[in-house]
Design a protein around this nucleic acid. Structure first.
Lengths: 346, 346
DNA sequence: TTGTACGCGTTATCAG
DNA sequence: CTGATAACGCGTACAA
C-alpha cells in the first residue's frame, strides 16, 4: 500500500520552521533568517516574499533554537520570598514592567524564606540560562557563585548579601527607628516590636532600629517577638504579647501581612487601634490608608525598586566588561496617619 | 608569538558541557547523558564516575539544548490582568505552588486588560515553546488558535472564552446577585454597582447579577458605573455617583482594588461604611476582615483556582490524546461581616 | 546579495 | 551496556 499523499484527518502537521518558510518563498533558510531579523544585507523584495510566506505557513520563530544558537535568553528570573506579600507584589509588578519594556519576560519564583527552595530556584534559573536574576535573598550568605561562574548577572534587592553584588536596598534600620520614635513621641510608653525571622536581614535591621529608639528612653522596656513575616504567625505572636502580665501599649510591626495578623489579635481583645493602642507597620500596603483609622506606615518605594532593579540588571547585561558592583539606596518614608496619634485623655 | 597554553587572567572559561564531563570521566557524551538522566541501561560504576566528573568540572545541564532536543519545556505561562489585584496574586501563588510541585516554573505576564498586550504575551509564550498557558483572558474572543496550532494546551480561568477550552470559572452572576440581595435584605434601598470594563466577562456577569437582584424589587433604581477594575478608577466612579442628586445608599463593588477606591470616596464624604452606607465587594482580600467594620465579600477560592488550573494543565500535558474540554466550576461564597448590616435607627 | 555548511548542547537511534 | 552519529531549529562565517 502506497503512502498517502495527503494529510489524514488527525495527522499531526509539523510546526513550520525556517526551512518551511524558505521552501514556500523559494529562497534559502539563511535568507529567511536574515529577512526575519531585519538584516540589512538583503533585498527588500526578498524580505517581502519571506514575510508573505512566513505568514502563509503560520511560522513562529522557535525561541529555544534561537537561544541555543545565540547563547542568550530574553528571560529574567525573579526570586522573592512570597508574591502574596504586597511589598513583593509591587516589586514584581515593577520588575515585570521594566522587563517587558525591553522585551524580556519574568520567571516568578517564591522562596518562602526557605534556603533549600531558594537553592533549587537558583539552579533552575541557571539551567534555564536566564539572562539575569533579581534576587531577594533568604539570608546574607545565599550562594550565588554558580551564577557568577555562568556569568549570569544578579541584582540583589531588599536585603544585602555579604558578598559584593549589584544591590538596591532600603535602609530598614532608619525606617524602623523613626517609626518607633514616632510611637514614643505620641505618648505610647510600651511599644513592642513584632519582627520577622532572625535569618532575614531586614527582620534584624528593623529590630535594631526599634531597639535604638527604645534605648533613647531610660527604663523603657524592649518587648520583642520574632514571627515568620506572615499573617498567622504574627497573630500568634501578638496574642502572646497581649497575654503577658504587662502587655505593650503600641506595636511596631515589620511588614504588611504581619500588620494584619497583629490587627486581628488586637480586634480579638477588643482593643481599638489608635485609641487603645498605637500602631505603625513597615510597608505601605494598598489598604493601609483605608483602615479606620488609617494606619501609619514606613513606606518603601516597592514598585520603583522593582523597576530599577530590572533596569540595573539589563544595563549590566549590556555592559561589555565586568563593572564594579553598584549599590543603590532608596529611602523609606514614614507616613503618619491618624492611627498612631495618641488621643489626649482626661 | 605562540598561543599561551594556560588561561590568562580574565580569560573566559567556557561553561562545561556534557562533552567536558565526558572527557573528564573518560566516557562518551552519550553515556554522560544517560548517567545524568537516570537511564537504567548504564553501569552503576559509570554513573558514579560521571557524577564525580560532573561535580569536578562544575557542570550544569543546559536546559535550552535539552528543550530543543526533546521539544519540551518545564515552563508554563501565566497571563493575568494584574498581579497587583489580590485575587490574581492569590491565583498566581496557587499556580506557582502547583507548578513547582511538578518541577515546572512560571512565566508571569500582566495583560492589564489590554488586548494588544495579551496578544503580545501569547506570542512570546508560543515562541518560548512553553509547555502550557494559564490564561485569564481579556475578552471572550481572545484568539488562542495559534496556541492550538502549536499544540500548546491552555486552561482559561476566571473568565470563559467563547471558544471551547479547558476552563475553571467561578460563577460571577450568582455571587453578584446574592451580594446585592443581601444588601437589599439589610434594608438598603438604593444599592449601586461599580463594575469593571464592559470588555471583561466577569464585569458584565457581576453587573447582570446586580441587575437581577435589583429587578426583584419594584421601583428600585439601577445605579451603575463602569470603572477599570482599578482603585483610582473606582474612586472617580464612586465620587461621581455620590455627587448625584439622589446618591446610592449602598455599594456592590466588583473587585477588591475597586473596593478600596470606593471606600476612599466614601471617606472623603465622611460617610461611615456600615452605618451610613452598605457595602459588599467581590473577592476576599486579606485585609477585608480587618477593616473596621469588617467588610462583607463574595469570596472566590483564588488559591485553589490557581492550583487546580495548573494541575489541569499539567494533566492535559500528559494526556496522550486530545481530550474534550473540561469545564470546572468553583463556587463563590458570600461572607457576611459586620459592615453590610444596616443598624436599626430611631 | 544569496546560498552552503557548520555548530550551539542535548538526547535518541542504531550498531557493536 | 557503550559509543558514534544524527537530528532539534536557528544564526552566521564563508564562499559564490
Amino acid at each position: 500500500m502506497p503512502r498517502r499523499e495527503v494529510a489524514t484527518v488527525g495527522e499531526v502537521t509539523p510546526t513550520p520552521t525556517i526551512k518551511t518558510v524558505a521552501e514556500a518563498a523559494g529562497v534559502s533558510p539563511a535568507s529567511v533568517s536574515r529577512a526575519l531579523n531585519g538584516n540589512p544585507t538583503i533585498a527588500p523584495e526578498i524580505v517581502e516574499r519571506v514575510m508573505r510566506a512566513a505568514d502563509a505557513v503560520g511560522y513562529r520563530p522557535n525561541g529555544i533554537a534561537r537561544s541555543l544558537r545565540t547563547r542568550t535568553t530574553k528571560v529574567i528570573a525573579l526570586l522573592i520570598p512570597d508574591i502574596g506579600n504586597p511589598f513583593f507584589t509591587a516589586v514584581a509588578r515593577g520588575v515585570t514592567d521594566a522587563a517587558e519594556a525591553e522585551g524580556y519576560t519574568v520567571l516568578l519564583c517564591n522562596t518562602d524564606e526557605d534556603p533549600e527552595k531558594e537553592r533549587r530556584h537558583l539552579a533552575v534559573a541557571e539551567q534555564a540560562r536566564v539572562a539575569g536574576v533579581v534576587l531577594s535573598p533568604q539570608g546574607r550568605d545565599t550562594d550565588i557563585s554558580r551564577l557568577r561562574q555562568s556569568r549570569i548577572p544578579v541584582v540583589v534587592i531588599d536585603r544585602p548579601l555579604r558578598e559584593k553584588t549589584d544591590a538596591i536596598v532600603v535602609p530598614s534600620f532608619v525606617g524602623a527607628r523613626d517609626a518607633t520614635r514616632h510611637l514614643i513621641e505620641q505618648g505610647w510608653s510600651r511599644p513592642a516590636c513584632i519582627t520577622g525571622p532572625a535569618s532575614a536581614d531586614t527582620a534584624r535591621a528593623r529590630l535594631r532600629g526599634y531597639r535604638a529608639a527604645i534605648r533613647e528612653h531610660d527604663g523603657m522596656p524592649e518587648i520583642v517577638a520574632h514571627a515568620d513575616f506572615r499573617q498567622d504567625g504574627a497573630m500568634l505572636a501578638a496574642r502572646e504579647l497581649l497575654a503577658r502580665a504587662d502587655p505593650p501599649d503600641a506595636f511596631f510591626v515589620a511588614n504588611a501581612p504581619m500588620a494584619l495578623g497583629t490587627l486581628a489579635a488586637l480586634a480579638e481583645r477588643g482593643l481599638r487601634v489608635g485609641s487603645d493602642v498605637g500602631f505603625v507597620s513597615f510597608d505601605d500596603a494598598p489598604w493601609a490608608p483605608y483602615m479606620t483609622p488609617p494606619i501609619s506606615v514606613v513606606a518603601q518605594p516597592a514598585h520603583p525598586l522593582g523597576e530599577r532593579s530590572a533596569r540595573l540588571l539589563l544595563e549590566s547585561l549590556r555592559a561589555p566588561v565586568e563593572r564594579r558592583p553598584r549599590r543603590i539606596t532608596l529611602s523609606p518614608t514614614l507616613i503618619v496617619r491618624a492611627i498612631s496619634h495618641r488621643p489626649r485623655r482626661g
